[in-house]
Design a protein around this nucleic acid. Structure first.
Lengths: 212, 212
DNA sequence: TCCCTTCCCTAACGATCGTTCGATCGAAAT
DNA sequence: ATTTCGATCGAACGATCGTTAGGGAAGGGA
Protein backbone atom coordinates (compact mmCIF):
# COMPACT_ATOMS: atom_id res chain seq x y z
CA UNK A 1 0.00 0.00 0.00
CA UNK A 2 1.00 3.56 -0.42
CA UNK A 3 1.98 4.13 3.16
CA UNK A 4 0.03 7.27 3.88
CA UNK A 5 -0.94 9.07 0.81
CA UNK A 6 2.35 9.07 -0.98
CA UNK A 7 5.11 7.72 1.07
CA UNK A 8 7.07 10.56 2.43
CA UNK A 9 6.38 11.20 6.01
CA UNK A 10 3.66 13.32 7.43
CA UNK A 11 6.16 15.71 8.88
CA UNK A 12 6.49 18.03 5.97
CA UNK A 13 4.79 16.02 3.23
CA UNK A 14 7.36 17.10 0.75
CA UNK A 15 5.95 16.38 -2.64
CA UNK A 16 2.24 16.43 -2.40
CA UNK A 17 -0.52 17.17 -0.11
CA UNK A 18 -3.36 15.79 1.47
CA UNK A 19 -5.67 13.40 3.00
CA UNK A 20 -7.24 10.06 2.55
CA UNK A 21 -8.68 11.04 -0.76
CA UNK A 22 -5.23 11.74 -2.12
CA UNK A 23 -4.43 8.06 -1.92
CA UNK A 24 -7.47 7.25 -4.00
CA UNK A 25 -6.34 9.74 -6.59
CA UNK A 26 -3.02 7.97 -6.88
CA UNK A 27 -4.69 4.59 -7.14
CA UNK A 28 -7.04 5.66 -9.90
CA UNK A 29 -4.28 7.53 -11.69
CA UNK A 30 -2.07 4.45 -11.59
CA UNK A 31 -4.79 2.32 -13.12
CA UNK A 32 -5.58 4.94 -15.74
CA UNK A 33 -1.96 5.61 -16.67
CA UNK A 34 -1.33 1.89 -16.97
CA UNK A 35 -4.26 1.32 -19.29
CA UNK A 36 -4.11 4.37 -21.53
CA UNK A 37 -0.68 5.82 -20.92
CA UNK A 38 0.08 9.08 -19.18
CA UNK A 39 -0.30 11.37 -22.18
CA UNK A 40 -3.48 9.75 -23.42
CA UNK A 41 -5.13 9.75 -20.00
CA UNK A 42 -6.78 13.08 -19.41
CA UNK A 43 -7.45 14.90 -16.17
CA UNK A 44 -11.14 14.55 -17.01
CA UNK A 45 -10.80 10.78 -17.28
CA UNK A 46 -9.23 10.67 -13.86
CA UNK A 47 -11.87 12.93 -12.34
CA UNK A 48 -14.62 10.79 -13.87
CA UNK A 49 -13.23 7.65 -12.28
CA UNK A 50 -13.18 9.37 -8.91
CA UNK A 51 -16.65 10.79 -9.51
CA UNK A 52 -15.56 14.34 -8.93
CA UNK A 53 -15.12 17.35 -11.23
CA UNK A 54 -11.76 17.93 -12.91
CA UNK A 55 -11.16 21.14 -10.99
CA UNK A 56 -11.48 19.31 -7.70
CA UNK A 57 -8.34 17.38 -8.47
CA UNK A 58 -6.31 20.54 -8.14
CA UNK A 59 -7.15 20.66 -4.49
CA UNK A 60 -5.07 17.51 -3.99
CA UNK A 61 -2.36 18.00 -6.61
CA UNK A 62 -0.92 21.13 -8.19
CA UNK A 63 -0.96 19.52 -11.62
CA UNK A 64 -1.08 16.37 -13.68
CA UNK A 65 2.68 15.89 -13.79
CA UNK A 66 2.89 15.88 -10.01
CA UNK A 67 0.60 12.86 -9.89
CA UNK A 68 2.92 10.97 -12.19
CA UNK A 69 5.89 12.06 -10.15
CA UNK A 70 4.28 10.91 -6.93
CA UNK A 71 3.57 7.48 -8.38
CA UNK A 72 7.07 7.00 -9.77
CA UNK A 73 9.04 8.35 -6.83
CA UNK A 74 6.91 6.49 -4.35
CA UNK A 75 7.23 3.20 -6.16
CA UNK A 76 10.97 3.48 -6.67
CA UNK A 77 11.56 4.54 -3.07
CA UNK A 78 9.64 1.58 -1.75
CA UNK A 79 11.38 -0.71 -4.22
CA UNK A 80 14.84 0.31 -3.10
CA UNK A 81 13.84 0.05 0.53
CA UNK A 82 12.53 -3.45 -0.01
CA UNK A 83 14.96 -5.02 -2.46
CA UNK A 84 18.32 -3.39 -1.79
CA UNK A 85 18.70 -4.79 1.74
CA UNK A 86 18.93 -8.24 0.18
CA UNK A 87 22.04 -7.04 -1.61
CA UNK A 88 23.69 -5.18 1.23
CA UNK A 89 23.08 -7.84 3.84
CA UNK A 90 26.10 -9.84 4.88
CA UNK A 91 25.86 -12.99 2.84
CA UNK A 92 27.38 -14.74 -0.16
CA UNK A 93 26.95 -12.83 -3.44
CA UNK A 94 25.07 -15.63 -5.15
CA UNK A 95 22.59 -15.90 -2.30
CA UNK A 96 22.22 -12.13 -2.31
CA UNK A 97 21.51 -11.97 -6.02
CA UNK A 98 19.03 -14.80 -5.91
CA UNK A 99 17.15 -13.26 -3.00
CA UNK A 100 17.15 -9.80 -4.57
CA UNK A 101 15.86 -11.03 -7.91
CA UNK A 102 13.13 -13.01 -6.19
CA UNK A 103 12.07 -9.95 -4.20
CA UNK A 104 12.23 -7.88 -7.36
CA UNK A 105 9.86 -10.25 -9.13
CA UNK A 106 7.43 -10.37 -6.21
CA UNK A 107 7.48 -6.60 -5.85
CA UNK A 108 6.88 -6.21 -9.56
CA UNK A 109 3.72 -8.22 -9.17
CA UNK A 110 2.40 -6.75 -5.94
CA UNK A 111 2.90 -3.20 -7.21
CA UNK A 112 2.39 -4.01 -10.84
CA UNK A 113 0.49 -0.87 -11.77
CA UNK A 114 2.98 1.53 -10.28
CA UNK A 115 5.89 -0.45 -11.67
CA UNK A 116 4.50 -0.32 -15.20
CA UNK A 117 3.79 3.39 -14.90
CA UNK A 118 7.30 4.00 -13.64
CA UNK A 119 8.83 2.03 -16.48
CA UNK A 120 6.68 3.29 -19.31
CA UNK A 121 5.62 6.81 -18.36
CA UNK A 122 8.60 8.05 -16.39
CA UNK A 123 10.03 9.81 -19.39
CA UNK A 124 7.08 12.22 -19.44
CA UNK A 125 8.40 13.83 -16.28
CA UNK A 126 10.18 17.18 -16.41
CA UNK A 127 13.97 16.75 -16.35
CA UNK A 128 14.50 17.55 -12.73
CA UNK A 129 11.90 15.12 -11.40
CA UNK A 130 12.98 12.50 -13.89
CA UNK A 131 16.54 12.80 -12.64
CA UNK A 132 15.33 12.31 -9.10
CA UNK A 133 13.67 9.01 -9.95
CA UNK A 134 16.55 7.89 -12.14
CA UNK A 135 18.97 8.52 -9.29
CA UNK A 136 17.15 5.92 -7.22
CA UNK A 137 17.18 3.46 -10.08
CA UNK A 138 20.89 3.99 -10.61
CA UNK A 139 21.48 3.44 -6.94
CA UNK A 140 19.89 0.02 -7.20
CA UNK A 141 21.73 -0.92 -10.38
CA UNK A 142 25.07 0.12 -8.95
CA UNK A 143 24.49 -1.88 -5.82
CA UNK A 144 23.56 -4.88 -7.90
CA UNK A 145 26.65 -4.44 -10.07
CA UNK A 146 28.85 -4.23 -7.00
CA UNK A 147 27.57 -7.51 -5.68
CA UNK A 148 28.16 -9.12 -9.05
CA UNK A 149 31.70 -7.78 -9.06
CA UNK A 150 32.20 -9.17 -5.60
CA UNK A 151 30.94 -12.54 -6.74
CA UNK A 152 33.41 -12.54 -9.61
CA UNK A 153 36.34 -11.89 -7.34
CA UNK A 154 35.28 -14.76 -5.14
CA UNK A 155 35.10 -17.02 -8.16
CA UNK A 156 31.35 -17.49 -7.90
CA UNK A 157 30.55 -15.70 -11.13
CA UNK A 158 32.23 -15.45 -14.48
CA UNK A 159 31.27 -12.06 -15.83
CA UNK A 160 33.48 -9.64 -17.71
CA UNK A 161 31.27 -6.57 -17.35
CA UNK A 162 29.33 -6.47 -14.09
CA UNK A 163 27.42 -3.32 -15.01
CA UNK A 164 26.22 -4.83 -18.24
CA UNK A 165 25.22 -7.99 -16.41
CA UNK A 166 23.29 -5.94 -13.88
CA UNK A 167 21.40 -4.16 -16.65
CA UNK A 168 20.64 -7.44 -18.38
CA UNK A 169 19.16 -8.91 -15.22
CA UNK A 170 17.16 -5.79 -14.44
CA UNK A 171 15.78 -5.70 -17.96
CA UNK A 172 14.84 -9.34 -17.76
CA UNK A 173 12.97 -8.94 -14.50
CA UNK A 174 11.36 -5.64 -15.44
CA UNK A 175 10.01 -7.22 -18.60
CA UNK A 176 8.00 -9.65 -16.52
CA UNK A 177 5.10 -7.39 -15.47
CA UNK A 178 4.50 -6.49 -19.10
CA UNK A 179 3.21 -9.91 -20.05
CA UNK A 180 3.14 -12.35 -17.13
CA UNK A 181 -0.35 -13.27 -15.94
CA UNK A 182 0.00 -15.50 -12.89
CA UNK A 183 -2.76 -18.01 -12.35
CA UNK A 184 -2.55 -17.60 -8.59
CA UNK A 185 -0.29 -16.35 -5.85
CA UNK A 186 1.82 -19.51 -5.84
CA UNK A 187 2.47 -18.92 -9.50
CA UNK A 188 4.21 -15.67 -8.61
CA UNK A 189 6.45 -17.37 -6.10
CA UNK A 190 7.24 -20.10 -8.59
CA UNK A 191 8.35 -17.63 -11.26
CA UNK A 192 10.21 -15.58 -8.67
CA UNK A 193 12.24 -18.66 -7.77
CA UNK A 194 12.69 -19.43 -11.42
CA UNK A 195 14.02 -15.98 -12.21
CA UNK A 196 16.29 -16.03 -9.19
CA UNK A 197 17.94 -19.17 -10.53
CA UNK A 198 17.98 -17.71 -14.02
CA UNK A 199 20.04 -14.79 -12.79
CA UNK A 200 22.50 -17.16 -11.17
CA UNK A 201 22.75 -19.23 -14.33
CA UNK A 202 23.53 -16.06 -16.24
CA UNK A 203 26.23 -14.89 -13.88
CA UNK A 204 27.87 -18.28 -13.45
CA UNK A 205 28.00 -19.30 -17.07
CA UNK A 206 28.34 -16.04 -18.92
CA UNK A 207 32.07 -16.18 -19.55
CA UNK A 208 32.91 -19.83 -19.15
CA UNK A 209 36.56 -20.27 -18.42
CA UNK A 210 37.78 -22.72 -21.03
CA UNK A 211 39.33 -24.70 -18.26
CA UNK A 212 39.21 -28.45 -18.26
CA UNK B 1 -4.64 -1.84 -45.80
CA UNK B 2 -1.26 -0.39 -46.37
CA UNK B 3 -0.91 -0.99 -49.97
CA UNK B 4 0.63 1.93 -51.64
CA UNK B 5 1.38 4.85 -49.55
CA UNK B 6 2.93 3.42 -46.48
CA UNK B 7 4.35 0.07 -46.80
CA UNK B 8 4.79 -2.70 -49.13
CA UNK B 9 5.32 -0.71 -52.20
CA UNK B 10 4.75 -1.75 -55.73
CA UNK B 11 7.78 -3.59 -56.86
CA UNK B 12 11.02 -3.32 -55.08
CA UNK B 13 10.52 -0.72 -52.48
CA UNK B 14 10.09 -3.13 -49.65
CA UNK B 15 10.44 -1.05 -46.56
CA UNK B 16 9.30 2.45 -47.21
CA UNK B 17 6.56 4.27 -48.86
CA UNK B 18 5.63 4.73 -52.42
CA UNK B 19 7.30 8.03 -52.91
CA UNK B 20 10.61 9.37 -51.84
CA UNK B 21 8.97 11.87 -49.54
CA UNK B 22 6.94 9.22 -47.79
CA UNK B 23 10.15 7.61 -46.59
CA UNK B 24 11.28 10.91 -45.13
CA UNK B 25 8.00 11.20 -43.28
CA UNK B 26 8.59 7.82 -41.65
CA UNK B 27 12.15 8.73 -40.75
CA UNK B 28 11.19 11.99 -39.13
CA UNK B 29 8.22 10.41 -37.41
CA UNK B 30 10.44 7.66 -36.01
CA UNK B 31 12.85 10.21 -34.58
CA UNK B 32 10.04 12.31 -33.19
CA UNK B 33 8.12 9.41 -31.67
CA UNK B 34 11.30 8.14 -30.08
CA UNK B 35 12.17 11.45 -28.48
CA UNK B 36 8.77 12.68 -27.35
CA UNK B 37 6.55 9.63 -27.52
CA UNK B 38 3.72 9.07 -29.96
CA UNK B 39 0.99 10.84 -28.01
CA UNK B 40 3.14 13.82 -27.14
CA UNK B 41 4.45 14.29 -30.67
CA UNK B 42 2.00 16.35 -32.66
CA UNK B 43 1.30 16.34 -36.37
CA UNK B 44 2.50 19.93 -36.39
CA UNK B 45 5.82 18.88 -34.85
CA UNK B 46 6.26 16.33 -37.58
CA UNK B 47 5.35 18.78 -40.32
CA UNK B 48 7.76 21.33 -38.89
CA UNK B 49 10.64 18.89 -39.02
CA UNK B 50 9.84 18.14 -42.66
CA UNK B 51 9.43 21.84 -43.41
CA UNK B 52 5.95 21.41 -44.79
CA UNK B 53 2.49 22.39 -43.55
CA UNK B 54 0.52 19.96 -41.37
CA UNK B 55 -2.15 19.52 -44.02
CA UNK B 56 0.44 18.34 -46.54
CA UNK B 57 1.08 15.27 -44.46
CA UNK B 58 -2.36 13.96 -45.25
CA UNK B 59 -1.39 13.57 -48.85
CA UNK B 60 1.02 10.82 -47.80
CA UNK B 61 -0.83 9.25 -44.89
CA UNK B 62 -4.53 9.12 -44.06
CA UNK B 63 -3.82 9.90 -40.42
CA UNK B 64 -1.36 9.98 -37.58
CA UNK B 65 -2.06 6.43 -36.45
CA UNK B 66 -1.21 5.03 -39.86
CA UNK B 67 2.28 6.46 -39.57
CA UNK B 68 2.80 4.64 -36.30
CA UNK B 69 1.40 1.48 -37.81
CA UNK B 70 3.70 1.71 -40.81
CA UNK B 71 6.74 2.09 -38.57
CA UNK B 72 5.82 -0.80 -36.30
CA UNK B 73 4.71 -3.26 -38.94
CA UNK B 74 7.62 -2.46 -41.17
CA UNK B 75 10.14 -2.90 -38.41
CA UNK B 76 8.67 -6.13 -37.12
CA UNK B 77 8.39 -7.60 -40.60
CA UNK B 78 12.02 -6.85 -41.33
CA UNK B 79 13.01 -8.17 -37.94
CA UNK B 80 11.34 -11.51 -38.47
CA UNK B 81 12.74 -11.79 -41.98
CA UNK B 82 16.23 -11.14 -40.68
CA UNK B 83 16.38 -12.95 -37.36
CA UNK B 84 14.05 -15.92 -37.67
CA UNK B 85 16.08 -17.68 -40.40
CA UNK B 86 18.83 -18.14 -37.82
CA UNK B 87 16.39 -20.21 -35.79
CA UNK B 88 14.86 -22.21 -38.59
CA UNK B 89 18.12 -23.04 -40.30
CA UNK B 90 19.33 -26.58 -39.91
CA UNK B 91 21.83 -26.37 -37.09
CA UNK B 92 22.29 -27.21 -33.46
CA UNK B 93 19.86 -25.39 -31.14
CA UNK B 94 22.61 -23.70 -29.15
CA UNK B 95 24.25 -22.37 -32.28
CA UNK B 96 20.88 -21.21 -33.54
CA UNK B 97 20.03 -19.36 -30.34
CA UNK B 98 23.41 -17.71 -30.15
CA UNK B 99 23.23 -16.55 -33.74
CA UNK B 100 19.66 -15.33 -33.39
CA UNK B 101 20.38 -13.35 -30.25
CA UNK B 102 23.41 -11.79 -31.87
CA UNK B 103 21.36 -10.79 -34.90
CA UNK B 104 18.67 -9.51 -32.61
CA UNK B 105 21.12 -7.25 -30.82
CA UNK B 106 22.64 -5.95 -34.03
CA UNK B 107 19.22 -5.30 -35.53
CA UNK B 108 18.17 -3.49 -32.39
CA UNK B 109 21.04 -1.12 -32.87
CA UNK B 110 20.83 -0.61 -36.63
CA UNK B 111 17.11 0.08 -36.47
CA UNK B 112 17.15 1.53 -32.98
CA UNK B 113 14.58 4.24 -33.56
CA UNK B 114 11.97 1.96 -35.07
CA UNK B 115 12.62 -0.72 -32.49
CA UNK B 116 12.06 1.70 -29.62
CA UNK B 117 8.91 3.06 -31.23
CA UNK B 118 7.62 -0.45 -31.73
CA UNK B 119 8.31 -1.40 -28.13
CA UNK B 120 7.10 1.74 -26.44
CA UNK B 121 4.39 3.19 -28.67
CA UNK B 122 2.83 0.08 -30.17
CA UNK B 123 0.05 0.07 -27.62
CA UNK B 124 -1.32 3.34 -29.02
CA UNK B 125 -2.42 1.47 -32.13
CA UNK B 126 -6.10 0.57 -32.60
CA UNK B 127 -6.78 -3.05 -31.61
CA UNK B 128 -6.81 -4.51 -35.09
CA UNK B 129 -3.50 -3.02 -36.18
CA UNK B 130 -1.99 -3.80 -32.80
CA UNK B 131 -2.99 -7.43 -33.19
CA UNK B 132 -1.35 -7.53 -36.59
CA UNK B 133 2.00 -6.43 -35.17
CA UNK B 134 1.65 -8.64 -32.12
CA UNK B 135 1.04 -11.64 -34.35
CA UNK B 136 4.48 -11.17 -35.87
CA UNK B 137 6.05 -10.81 -32.47
CA UNK B 138 4.35 -13.95 -31.26
CA UNK B 139 5.57 -15.79 -34.32
CA UNK B 140 9.14 -14.97 -33.39
CA UNK B 141 8.70 -15.86 -29.75
CA UNK B 142 7.10 -19.17 -30.58
CA UNK B 143 9.89 -20.06 -32.97
CA UNK B 144 12.44 -19.17 -30.33
CA UNK B 145 10.61 -21.26 -27.74
CA UNK B 146 10.48 -24.21 -30.09
CA UNK B 147 14.24 -24.13 -30.61
CA UNK B 148 14.74 -23.95 -26.87
CA UNK B 149 12.49 -26.94 -26.41
CA UNK B 150 14.44 -28.80 -29.03
CA UNK B 151 17.66 -27.98 -27.25
CA UNK B 152 16.24 -29.35 -24.02
CA UNK B 153 15.32 -32.65 -25.61
CA UNK B 154 18.82 -32.96 -26.98
CA UNK B 155 20.24 -32.32 -23.55
CA UNK B 156 21.84 -29.04 -24.54
CA UNK B 157 19.66 -26.91 -22.32
CA UNK B 158 18.11 -27.35 -18.92
CA UNK B 159 14.94 -25.34 -18.98
CA UNK B 160 11.61 -26.29 -17.45
CA UNK B 161 9.49 -23.71 -19.28
CA UNK B 162 10.74 -22.91 -22.76
CA UNK B 163 8.17 -20.18 -23.37
CA UNK B 164 9.14 -18.40 -20.21
CA UNK B 165 12.79 -18.70 -21.15
CA UNK B 166 12.07 -17.26 -24.58
CA UNK B 167 10.31 -14.29 -23.05
CA UNK B 168 13.15 -13.74 -20.61
CA UNK B 169 15.70 -13.66 -23.40
CA UNK B 170 13.59 -11.40 -25.58
CA UNK B 171 13.04 -8.99 -22.69
CA UNK B 172 16.75 -8.96 -21.97
CA UNK B 173 17.70 -8.17 -25.55
CA UNK B 174 14.89 -5.67 -26.10
CA UNK B 175 16.02 -3.80 -23.02
CA UNK B 176 19.35 -3.08 -24.64
CA UNK B 177 18.36 -0.25 -27.02
CA UNK B 178 16.83 1.64 -24.11
CA UNK B 179 20.12 2.40 -22.45
CA UNK B 180 23.11 1.03 -24.39
CA UNK B 181 25.25 3.70 -26.04
CA UNK B 182 27.96 1.95 -28.07
CA UNK B 183 31.22 3.83 -28.43
CA UNK B 184 31.68 2.53 -31.97
CA UNK B 185 30.53 -0.17 -34.33
CA UNK B 186 32.85 -2.79 -32.86
CA UNK B 187 31.23 -2.12 -29.53
CA UNK B 188 27.93 -3.31 -30.94
CA UNK B 189 29.44 -6.54 -32.17
CA UNK B 190 31.13 -7.06 -28.85
CA UNK B 191 27.90 -6.73 -26.91
CA UNK B 192 26.06 -8.83 -29.48
CA UNK B 193 28.54 -11.65 -28.86
CA UNK B 194 28.24 -11.09 -25.14
CA UNK B 195 24.47 -11.35 -25.19
CA UNK B 196 24.57 -14.41 -27.40
CA UNK B 197 26.68 -16.17 -24.81
CA UNK B 198 24.49 -14.81 -22.04
CA UNK B 199 21.46 -16.47 -23.58
CA UNK B 200 23.34 -19.77 -23.75
CA UNK B 201 24.42 -19.46 -20.15
CA UNK B 202 20.81 -18.89 -19.18
CA UNK B 203 19.50 -21.89 -21.06
CA UNK B 204 22.27 -24.26 -20.02
CA UNK B 205 22.32 -23.47 -16.33
CA UNK B 206 18.76 -22.49 -15.58
CA UNK B 207 17.66 -25.79 -14.07
CA UNK B 208 20.90 -27.47 -13.10
CA UNK B 209 20.45 -31.17 -12.75
CA UNK B 210 21.81 -31.93 -9.33
CA UNK B 211 23.88 -34.66 -10.89
CA UNK B 212 27.46 -34.83 -9.73
C1' DT C 1 -22.08 32.67 17.32
C1' DC C 2 -18.38 33.42 14.10
C1' DC C 3 -14.41 31.98 11.69
C1' DC C 4 -11.44 29.08 9.30
C1' DT C 5 -10.25 25.17 6.89
C1' DT C 6 -11.35 21.42 3.80
C1' DC C 7 -13.47 19.80 -0.09
C1' DC C 8 -16.12 20.16 -4.04
C1' DC C 9 -18.70 22.76 -7.32
C1' DT C 10 -19.95 25.59 -12.00
C1' DA C 11 -18.02 28.00 -15.58
C1' DA C 12 -14.85 29.18 -18.40
C1' DC C 13 -10.10 30.41 -20.08
C1' DG C 14 -6.54 30.03 -23.89
C1' DA C 15 -3.94 26.62 -26.14
C1' DT C 16 -3.35 22.84 -28.87
C1' DC C 17 -5.02 18.72 -30.85
C1' DG C 18 -6.02 15.78 -35.43
C1' DT C 19 -8.19 16.67 -39.42
C1' DT C 20 -10.73 18.74 -43.59
C1' DC C 21 -11.57 21.76 -47.53
C1' DG C 22 -10.56 24.05 -51.58
C1' DA C 23 -7.13 26.47 -54.16
C1' DT C 24 -2.53 26.76 -56.25
C1' DC C 25 1.81 25.48 -58.29
C1' DG C 26 4.96 22.87 -61.32
C1' DA C 27 6.17 19.34 -64.17
C1' DA C 28 5.01 15.63 -67.14
C1' DA C 29 1.86 13.91 -70.66
C1' DT C 30 -1.19 14.70 -74.52
C1' DA D 1 -0.89 24.86 -75.82
C1' DT D 2 -3.68 22.33 -73.04
C1' DT D 3 -4.68 18.81 -69.83
C1' DT D 4 -3.49 15.99 -65.96
C1' DC D 5 -2.01 14.99 -61.56
C1' DG D 6 0.82 14.64 -57.51
C1' DA D 7 2.31 17.75 -53.91
C1' DT D 8 1.82 21.61 -51.27
C1' DC D 9 -0.50 25.55 -49.43
C1' DG D 10 -3.57 28.85 -46.25
C1' DA D 11 -7.38 28.74 -43.37
C1' DA D 12 -10.24 26.92 -40.59
C1' DC D 13 -13.22 23.21 -38.28
C1' DG D 14 -14.88 21.09 -33.83
C1' DA D 15 -13.04 18.69 -30.04
C1' DT D 16 -10.36 18.23 -26.21
C1' DC D 17 -6.53 19.51 -23.47
C1' DG D 18 -4.57 21.25 -18.58
C1' DT D 19 -5.68 24.73 -15.73
C1' DT D 20 -7.84 28.73 -13.19
C1' DA D 21 -11.21 31.78 -10.83
C1' DG D 22 -14.57 32.26 -7.56
C1' DG D 23 -18.15 30.59 -4.75
C1' DG D 24 -20.85 27.34 -1.73
C1' DA D 25 -21.66 23.71 1.76
C1' DA D 26 -20.00 21.09 5.91
C1' DG D 27 -17.72 20.91 10.27
C1' DG D 28 -14.62 21.64 14.18
C1' DG D 29 -12.57 25.12 17.34
C1' DA D 30 -12.71 29.82 19.36
Amino acid sequence: MLSRENGMGNGERATLGGNLRTGQVLESATRLFTEKGYEAASVRDLAAELEIRPSSLYHHFPGKQHILFAICLNMQTDFNAEVMPELTADRAPDDAIEAAVRRHVVFGHRRKGEVLVNIRERRSLPPEQLAQVNALRREYRDTLARVIEDGCQRGLFSVREPKLAAMAIVDMVNGLPHWFKPRNEDDVERVADLYGRAALALLRGWDPTPAG
